[in-house]
Amino acid sequence: MPTSGTEPRRGFRVWIPGAAALALLAAAPAPLALEPGVQLEISGFVLRVTDERGEITHVLEGERLQQFDELGLQRAEDPRLEFLTDGHIDWVWTAPAAVHYPAAHRLVLLGTTEGVRLPSPEQPQTEITSADVTIVTDTREVFTDARATLVRPGLVMTGVGMHADVAADLIELRSEVETVYAPENP
C-alpha cells in the first residue's frame, strides 16, 4: 500500500544469521589469480617504518600494494608517504602511483607529485609540485629531473631538476630557475 508523503516509509529489514552472512561475504568474487610476478598483494595497506629506537620515521600507505619478489620491488597505487620527526608528521608526499624498493630505501613517485611540509612554529607550510620524484627514505633526500615548483608565503621558486634534503631544509634547482620574493601580506 503506497504511503503518503508525510508518513515515513515503512522500513524493510532482513536478519541473516552470522554464519550465513560470512558465507555470503566469502562468496564475494576473489581474484582467481594475481598478476604474473606478483607474490603478494594487499588492498589498503599501511607500512610503518621505525628506527633503532623503535620510533616511527616514516609511513607509506595506499590503495593497493603489489610485491614482486624477483624484482625486489613493490608497486603502490595512490601512495602517501609521511615523514615523521619526534612523532610529528613534517612532510607528506603523494602521487598517483609509486614503485618502492625497500632494500634500497627508495620510493619512486610516478606522475604528478605533491610534497607538503606542514607548518611548524619555525617554518610556514611549504608546497612542492613536481613529477616523477625519487625519495630516499632513510636520508630524506628528494630528486627529480622534472620541473619542480616550491611555493611558500612570500616565495615562489621554480626550476628544472631538483635535489632537496628535506631533513636539512636545503633545496637545489639545477636549471631554468625563476624566483619571486613577494611580501607575504602587502
Binding site: 616550491l150 621558486m157 626550476g159 636545503l170 633545496i171 637545489e172 634547482l173 639545477r174 636549471s175 631554468e176 630557475v177 625563476e178 624566483t179 619571486v180 620574493y181 613577494a182 611580501p183
Partner: peptide, 11 residues
C-alpha cells in the same frame, strides 16, 4: 616583489 632568474639556485 623581487624577481630573479638564473641557471641554478640553492636555498
Amino acid at each position: 616583489p623581487v624577481r630573479i632568474s638564473a641557471d641554478r639556485a640553492e636555498m
